[in-house]
Design a protein around this nucleic acid. Structure first.
Lengths: 252, 252
DNA sequence: CGTCTTATTGAATTGTCTCAACATGCGTGG
DNA sequence: CCACGCATGTTGAGACAATTCAATAAGACG
């Protein structure tokens, strides 16, 4: 990603100054930025058709932006709010496969099969930017840089999943949750969200599904963390009081 | 991958007929094939430098082809034998993150960070082909088709990992092992290995690490499968006697 | 042929799940 | 704006699958 910027250094500077709504990620902190940059740069050559990049669509809490097995059209970036991606199950509980925070991308994994492998639903009122890969492909317009960005992102995703798998396998409920909380705040921090307190959109059962725990276990562990002054958790507002303590637990 | 072949239909036909050593995967069944094909095709234009594609290096059992955090150089394809990839842990057991059978690729995930995220070790005497991405990149030679192949492979990998995560979370030891055995044979079958009996290179603890089970549990379940005439397992030779029975268990 | 590693089997322990009751929050409509 | 009802979260007790520890058996390899 950073490499990409170095290759096209004039990008970013020439970007139109943006007005940030409260709680929105800045473009330079957004995961879509490398691709947006390339597209905007390319626009001068006017090869990019209209409607390839749709900016800041509002998505209401509970709304889906695509369903599992929908034909792959677009990659989305979360501008504000948060999403969960999950595989719907007939037998009761869905399987949550990911949380997508501010500045992160959704839908990339549809590239191979040309179908989305999961449903994406807003956990709270959110907004997204949409990159219509379909239109891009149709015009035969798939810049090498763009592809490189995609490759970079996908291989990062794979690495992250390896970590997740390792975590799920060997770690106790305490370790998983400590790691999860640290991961959340780390991700938000890297996107420029530097508050001490965060709104976590996901429910206990979402977290449980994602981490392979019963929602009751999630609840129990979180209250215990709270009793030990590791975190503060009121309703859906989270504050890490003792990140080092959590790290201690996560790494054992 | 298939799409790739359609786009360049003359590829494959023009390939030099190869002599297959016993137990080797045929080039047309190998995961590297789309990339090899492109490279060979391109050779006529003589843009590809020497030494980008190294064919059939022998790797002895127990030997590593790269270590975790080594600088990323190449992607490898397994021509014969099998490999495990794992994250070494100071505290005793390593975490196995993947098995790589005949015709499958290793190392792709190093692309993003430019370092290998795991160590790759031969489970038995094996041979590999090596694609030196480094040299490719240096010459500025990164075909769009090649990139598309990589993207396709990576997003398939992500999808597979989602499945794996789901499996690890909700499934019992029996289900995981049944699924694992079916997956192994399915992969071998798709690479042209059609024997009823296979040499599985991995130990019980490798399997346990990979599936998140104690090696004792793996052992117990496998012997139970054997008692129920689902499989035959002598030493390291495996035969599926009742795939439907296994499917029944895996899908519950 | 003996040694070292890997696999099997047994018995006791434990972390997490399930089931269940209760509490709290949230959105809706009156 | 409040009251109601449903969804979500908390807490407790019992059940159970898989782990751990341990002892033995069976291969692998020089």
């Amino acid at each position: 990603m950073e490499k990409l910027k170095k290759q096209i250094p004039h990008i970013g500077r020439r970007r139109v100054p943006e007005k940030l709504a409260a709680g929105e990620v800045a473009c330079q902190d957004c995961g879509m930025d490398p691709m947006c940059s390339i597209l905007e740069y390319a626009e001068e050559g006017s090869h990019v058709p209209e409607g390839v990049l749709l900016r800041r669509r509002q998505v209401a809490r509970g709304e889906t932006i695509f369903l599992k097995d929908d034909p792959f059209r677009s990659v989305f970036a979360v501008k504000s709010g948060s999403f969960k991606t999950y595989i719907p199950k007939v037998s009761g509980h869905d399987q949550v496969v990911g949380f997508h925070l501010i500045g992160e991308l959704i839908g990339m994994e549809g590239l191979s099969s040309q179908r989305y492998p999961y449903t994406a639903r807003a956990l709270q009122d959110s907004s997204v930017c949409e990159l219509r890969m379909e239109s891009l492909a149709e015009t035969g317009y798939l810049l090498e840089e763009l592809q490189r960005g995609i490759i970079s992102m996908l291989s990062a995703e794979v690495a992250f999943n390896h970590q997740l798998i390792t975590a799920l396998i060997h770690q106790s409920a305490d370790q998983r949750l400590a790691g999860f909380l640290l991961n959340l705040t780390k991700r938000l921090y890297s996107r420029g969200m530097r508050q001490v307190e965060f709104q976590i959109g996901m429910s206990r059962s979402d977290i449980g599904s994602y981490l392979g725990l019963a929602s009751e276990t999630v609840s129990r562990v979180l209250t215990r963390f709270q009793k030990n002054d590791l975190i503060q958790l009121r309703h859906k507002r989270l504050r890490l009081l003792d990140p080092d303590g959590l790290r201690e637990i996560a790494e054992h």
